[in-house]
Design a protein around this nucleic acid. Structure first.
Lengths: 119, 119
DNA sequence: ATACATAGTATATTTTTAGATACTTTTATT
DNA sequence: AATAAAAGTATCTAAAAATATACTATGTAT
């Protein structure tokens, strides 16, 4: 049988947002991309500030399951695990860049508007 | 004072996803765009199949609050209310198009893979 | 033998989202 | 007087997402 998260996606947009719409997902992909496409669990933990290890693990597992991340385990002690973007994951980068830029511009605009309001 | 959804966004990406990451948000913007940038409440209700009026209203209010949608009320009976994209909302269209295309391609790939697996 | 490092698990709880169902408003029409 | 149309509200409940806190495994270094 085939998997199902809660049921079939309604359309391509729905499908896409289920994969990267989570609270930290796009950010995690972005951080990895920025760090030359490799980050260890502990490094991510520091970058995604305030995330609990449970959430981080869960999110990473979902990204892996959706084939956006590779997880490479080194058989050493203490453990070493590296996360990197898959080819499919890399395809999302321009898009993440785009919406990040939009967000940045919006935040700027809001700041200006709020300045006006408060004076 | 200034508003807050639950608290300040962590970064531009976080900011952006809070605005369009909801279950139906991107889809609603997309539908309106596709219909020449105007849709009435009842039309949206039909297009966003299975959404409850409560959710639809709530989602539309959030989009309006975030300045992605205009809400135009005609003072007639029975009521007539039209929703259209703001300029800011329109800026998101290329991005929505992009991720929709990615989703479509991914779904295709998965279909092919599942076919292989199942035979 | 004890402590440390790293990458997690386990469990319980809270918060956020979403869903179900019924009801409201105001004129025009029958 | 009753009914209909469109765009919602109100209330309650359920499901999903996120948080808090504590704990585990295994070699290596002290």
């Amino acid at each position: 049988m085939t998997k199902k998260k809660s049921d079939a996606p309604i359309c391509a947009l729905d499908y896409a947002f289920r994969r990267i719409g989570g609270k930290h997902k796009a950010r995690i992909l972005w951080y990895i991309y920025q760090q030359n496409n490799v980050l260890r669990y502990g490094e991510l933990k520091k970058m995604v500030q305030n995330i609990t290890s449970k959430m981080l693990t869960q999110t990473l597992r979902e990204l892996e399951e959706d084939n956006l991340l590779n997880r490479k385990v080194y058989p050493v002690v203490p453990p070493k695990v590296e996360y990197s973007l898959t080819e499919t994951g890399k395809e999302l980068i321009p898009f993440i860049e785009h919406i990040g830029a939009w967000g940045r511009a919006q935040m700027e605009k809001e700041k200006v508007e709020n300045k006006k309001k408060d004076e």
